[in-house]
Each structure stands twice: as structure tokens, then as C-alpha cells.
Design a protein around this nucleic acid. Structure first.
Lengths: 195, 195
DNA sequence: AATTGACGAACGATCGTTCGTTCTTGATTT
DNA sequence: AAATCAAGAACGAACGATCGTTCGTCAATT
């Protein structure tokens, strides 16, 4: 007798959708107010479900924060994978990465969450571990684009540079943002060029 | 009949000392637990005073946070002023600044507080304003060390770079920290050198 | 009929703040 | 020099609000 495969899909699909919706609205609230200023009632209310039901989908607040962090890490994937799978990494690819990553980190949502997470990293080792992993991938991928004379530490600097630059760009006008990106690209190019 | 000038000093001195002690212990707690995880009772208890008395020295929690931010800004002064008052700014002075500022930002206390404050900047305009002012001074001073072809945006990148680099260096061993600083110095030097 | 998503009341804990009070201190008066 | 006084530092109980979480119950789906 075969396992039921017709009842699960529809049900699980809706559940997953609901869950995703919760994570999404929670993220918005975390961005607006921060982790610790956002209550479970806020999340439930904004997500359109009851407080009790929220606990049917997530074990607790920490669980939601972890889910957010996961989504945050996933948003980096489309930038990271082409960099990792490149067959001929070099300065051009690095330049592309700088633009892409800057675009991501200058997003208000991403920046606010990142700031929140960075502050949390100093105290919450669980979240830290997850983020350190993807960050290491990032650094490794960037390193492969650099000259032989440069190493992981330089790659880390490039990554940090783009991140903080994007963070500072939040809220600026489109024109200013363009200027910042251009300055950043030139800055990075000089910094990774040995003479 | 002369105004009393003998009663105030001794008293005010003790009061100021007390106040400074509160700010100091509050900072430690904020570093350990974060702004919003630290309660007024924690601060009062650790400072060795009563909860009620705490409100005789500070209007409220926000007031303490503001005081912390002020102290934080002051700790930057010994690095900032020589840079501002230099008569012959140049790459050597910039190099010195990079080392000094890295030393400061890689301090666990400074880094943790900075992370906390950055996260707060997105929501608390009052604190943001105070910090933007000193940050602007920093950028201006760095800019004066750069080649004519480079501007404020490049200076901002240098500052951001040192900050994030210091933040990443927290918790590392002395040897690793030295390596990071050396890499950073070389990185910055390349980035501000036009060819 | 059985499983489980959905619900909101309620729990204990803790939050920032206020309050009335006592005690210390330095200045003023005797 | 001693007594008196007001200012305010110190205190801890108590307030109302909100926190994360649990619970018993209901309704819907299979």
C-alpha cells in the first residue's frame, strides 16, 4: 500500500506558504523596530494570524530569527554562486561582484537586518556560526579573483568594504548612490592591483 | 557677600564621579547584553546603587544611552585631533591613522558598542545625528591626507574599511591581528595611490 | 472519527518609570 | 561651636504595560 502523496502536497504547500508569509512580515518588523523591540504579537498581528497559531508554525521567537537569518543568507546566493562557479575568475568578475553586492547591501531591508545581525553576532553564537559559513564562502570566492600576491585577508577586506559601503549608501538618492558605487569600484580596483 | 564656591566643588565632584561610574558600568552591560536586553535594574545593581537613585542621575534609559554614545565619541578624540591639526597631511599620517583607528575599533568594547549603535542608527535619529557629526570630522580629516584626485567619498571608504576591518579582528589572537593590520595598511596604501 | 490548524485568554516574569519616604550633607543661624 | 535648616541623594515598593509562552477549546480538513 503506497504512502499517501496526494494529501500532503496541497496541505504542505499552504503551510509552507503561510510560514514564508510569517517570516516575510517578521523580517519587515525586525527591520522597522529591531529584533528585541518586535513582539510576537506584532508579528502575529501583521501576519494576519493569531498569537497562539504563531506558535504552531514556529517553536518560538528564536526560531523565527533563525528563519530570517536563513532567508537573508539565501538572498546572497544569486550573487555568490556565479562567482564560485566561474571558470575564469579575474578582475572583471570581481568588478561585477562589487556592483552586485553593493546593490544588495545598499537595500534598506538588507542593511538594517545586517546591522541587527552583526550586533547580535557578539552574543548569539548560533546565528554567528551560520553567518560565518556563508561569509567564508564569499571571501573564498572573492579570493579566487585576486592576483596571486593577495590572499584571504585581502579578500575579506574587499568584502567588508563593499558591505560597509552599501550600508552607508542606504537612504541616499539614486545619483549619490551611483557616485558611491563608481568610487567604490575604482577604489577596489586600485586596492587589488599590485604594481 | 560672596557666593558660595566651596560647597559645590566637593559635592559636584563626587556626583560627577558617581555619574561617570554609572555610565561606565552601563556601557559594560550594553556590551555584554545589548541596549535593549539591559534593564535599569541591571545597571543600578551593577553600579551599586538603588533603582530609584538611578533616576536621580539620569532622566531615563535613553539618557544613559546618549551618555554612552558621548563617551564613545570622546574616545575617538585622541586619534582625530592630531589628524585634524596636522600641518603637513599626507600618506604617512594616513598610515598612522589606519593603525591607530584599527587599534581602537578592534577593541571588543568599542566594536560591540559600535555594532549596537549602528543598528540603532536606523531607528534613533537623535543618536544618529551625534555620530554623523564626528564621523564627518573623521572623513574630512582623512580626506586632507589624500591625493588631489581623490575626494570625500574615497575618504569615507578608507574610514569604513578600517572600521569593519577592526570589527572583524575582534577576538582574534595578537598574531592574527598583526597580520590583519599589515594587510590593511598595504591595502589602504594601494587604494589611495593613483598611477 | 481523528488529526491538527486556528484561536484568544491567561500565566508568570520583567520592563521602564513613578512615588513617598528616609538619610546625608553642606550652609545658615544662633 | 552648636543647633537648625533646606536640598537633594538614596532607597525600595509599587504601577501599568508588555514580554514570550502555554493552555484549553473550537473548527476544519482528511
Amino acid at each position: 500500500m503506497p504512502e499517501n502523496e496526494s494529501k500532503q502536497p496541497a496541505r504542505n504547500e499552504r503551510l509552507a506558504e503561510r510560514r514564508a508569509r510569517i517570516v516575510e512580515t517578521a523580517a519587515i518588523l525586525f527591520i522597522e523596530k529591531g529584533f528585541h523591540q518586535t513582539g510576537m504579537r506584532d508579528i502575529a498581528g501583521r501576519a494576519g494570524i493569531s498569537l497562539g497559531n504563531l506558535y504552531n508554525h514556529f517553536k518560538g521567537k528564536e526560531d523565527i530569527i533563525a528563519a530570517i537569518a536563513e532567508v537573508e543568507a539565501e538572498s546572497l546566493e544569486p550573487i555568490l554562486t556565479p562567482l564560485e562557479n566561474a571558470e575564469a575568475p579575474g578582475l572583471d568578475l570581481l568588478d561585477r561582484f562589487v556592483s552586485d553586492y553593493f546593490g544588495l547591501t545598499s537595500t534598506p531591508a538588507y542593511a538594517a537586518l545586517s546591522a541587527e545581525i552583526v550586533a547580535e553576532l557578539f552574543r548569539n553564537p548560533d546565528i554567528a556560526q551560520s553567518f560565518e559559513a556563508t561569509r567564508l564562502r564569499l571571501i573564498k570566492a572573492v579570493e579566487s579573483c585576486l592576483s596571486p600576491g593577495l590572499g584571504a585577508l585581502d579578500a575579506e577586506l574587499v568584502v567588508s568594504l563593499v558591505e560597509s559601503s552599501g550600508l552607508n549608501a542606504v537612504g541616499k538618492s539614486a545619483g549619490e548612490m551611483d557616485s558611491m558605487l563608481e568610487t567604490l569600484r575604482a577604489f577596489v580596483r586600485r586596492s587589488v592591483t599590485l604594481n
